[in-house]
Structures are given as structure tokens and as C-alpha cells.
Design a protein around this nucleic acid. Structure first.
Lengths: 144, 144
DNA sequence: CTGCTTGCAAAGGCTTTGCAGAACA
DNA sequence: TGTTCTGCAAAGCCTTTGCAAGCAG
């Protein structure tokens, strides 16, 4: 017979390796959160992550979700997307890309980096170094 | 002698015209707020506007500042800049341009639209229309 | 043991809201 | 007099923090 139920999206072992690679101790809570995030490329608010992680039963507290998302972002595992003044989105896709933000629905859509060509960067203030470029195309419609 | 103190930056009359042009009733509070905003192109948080308007004496309440900034933004008189999860900046310059945001200092700098060339836009989700494009270059340094 | 983690609850900071009184046409 | 606006205070939301208990090495 095949193996019993396994690989609860994505493989726990793979997630643990990812965390270790960034020098993040793979505690059970962090692994749970990472599994939700890396199930697929997506944009989730802290609250959505909290809800998904604890879908069936309590696993991680709110404080830990916030701390962990902050840690992951700081370590470059995920990316913070600031487009909505009411909440921060965490993007599990860290490949260079941009976003379309639907102001009416709150929906966030990816835009391939290649789809938006950016010319030479302007001069940055002295003493500063670029930390990232984000292009946000705001749209409205449908449920306007 | 010259005229007595006048033109408290910018001319009250000009501001009133600007408001009327957008069909905003020029109440004294709105005019006070508009004068602060349009004294020069700048980026201010609601709290900063509140402080400047009431610099010498109470003129406008916090609630009215928030309501008014929201109204001005909605009417296209100013622009909301979402780059910091802790507060919204209001930009009194509505000409097409982008921003450099210093994550460490919270400083916001303008980037001329011409300094960043954007290629053709990607396809927008159906039923939606572009509402604006914002390029944010995050930098860190100096007081890192 | 010693340091890192977690969780609960409280605190915080920004913004919105309810509603009564004021202002204006 | 009807409508719009303002201000105060309370409420709301998302996020952070303080601190004691839990865990891992």
C-alpha cells in the first residue's frame, strides 16, 4: 500500500529546512505558520494567517503570529506589502514583482516585474541605500 | 506705509477658490487646513496637520481634521500616501510623481515622475480601472 | 541552568463614529 | 427651518508590549 496521509502542504521537512537556512529556530509554531504561508504564493494579513493556522484547533497565539510574521519578514522569508492603511499584507512570494491593489475589494494581484519596466533610479538621499522598490497600481471597480 | 500683515500663506482667497472649484464648502476650518497644506508641497500626517493648524491657538478639532483630510483626498485636492503601516501621509502635491521612503527616519522624498520610466501597464483585472500608480523606493540608512 | 519562545492580557497609536449643538442658506 | 458641519468623547482596529511560564540544549 502507499504511505499513509502525509505531506500536509508543503512538506514539513522542507519548511523546516527553509527556516534553518535563514537561521530561524523551527519551533512548532513557526513551522505551522510557515506551512500556511508557503502552501502557495499568496497575500495574507496577520489575522488571516492566525485564522488559517488555527483553523481546526488552537495552535498559535495572536502575539506569536505577529512576532513570527515580523521575524520572517525581517529575515527575508516573506515580504510586507503596505497598500492598505488598515492592515499589513504578507506576501509569501519574494521574487521581484509588483502589485495591483483593488481599493474597493481589498484584493491584491501580482504583476510580474518584467511587465513594468523601471528606468534608472533617481539619486537616493546621501547615506541611504535602496531597500526595495514597490510599484502599486491602484484600481477600483466591480464592487465600487 | 505698506499694507499691514496680510497674506498668511497662501492667500486665503486663493484657497477658498480652490475649495469651491472642487465643490467643497469653504468653512473656516477647511480653509485653515487647506492653508497649511498648500503653504508648499509637503507630506504631512493627520497629526502633523492638526498640530500646525492649532499651532498658536485651537482652531480645528481632531475629528474635523481627519474628516477634512479624507474629504480633500476624495475630492482630489490632496493625495494619500500609504507607505507606513502606522500612519497615512497626505501629499499636497498632486502632480504625478513618486516617493522615496526612508524606513529608518520616516522621511518621505519626492521623485519626479520623469525620473522613473514605467513601461506599458499590465492587464488590469476585468471590470476595474486604474486609479493611480505609485512607485515607492524604500531606503534605509543614516540613522539606521 | 541559561537563553530563546510562547501566550495572555493589557496597553498603545491612529482613525472612525455617535450624536448634540452650531453654522449657514 | 432644513441641511451641512463641527467637536467632544467614546469606541474600534490592528499591532505591540510586559511579563511569567514553558522549552530546548
Amino acid at each position: 500500500m502507499g504511505k499513509p496521509i502525509e505531506n500536509p502542504v508543503p512538506a514539513r521537512a522542507a519548511v523546516i529546512e527553509t527556516l534553518k537556512a535563514r537561521r530561524i529556530a523551527p519551533t512548532s509554531q513557526r513551522v505551522e505558520i510557515a506551512q500556511v504561508l508557503f502552501a502557495r504564493p499568496q497575500h495574507l494579513s496577520a489575522d488571516e494567517v492566525l485564522a488559517q493556522v488555527n483553523r481546526d484547533r488552537p495552535r498559535v497565539s495572536k502575539a506569536t503570529v505577529y512576532n513570527t510574521l515580523g521575524l520572517f519578514a525581517q529575515r527575508g522569508l516573506i515580504r510586507e506589502v503596505i497598500v492598505d492603511p488598515t492592515r499589513v499584507f504578507y506576501d509569501s512570494n519574494i521574487d521581484e514583482h509588483h502589485h495591483i491593489y483593488n481599493v474597493d475589494t481589498g484584493e491584491l494581484t501580482d504583476v510580474d516585474a518584467a511587465a513594468v519596466s523601471i528606468g534608472q533610479l533617481p539619486n537616493l538621499p546621501d547615506g541611504t541605500v535602496a531597500d526595495g522598490i514597490e510599484v502599486v497600481i491602484r484600481v477600483r471597480g466591480r464592487n465600487a
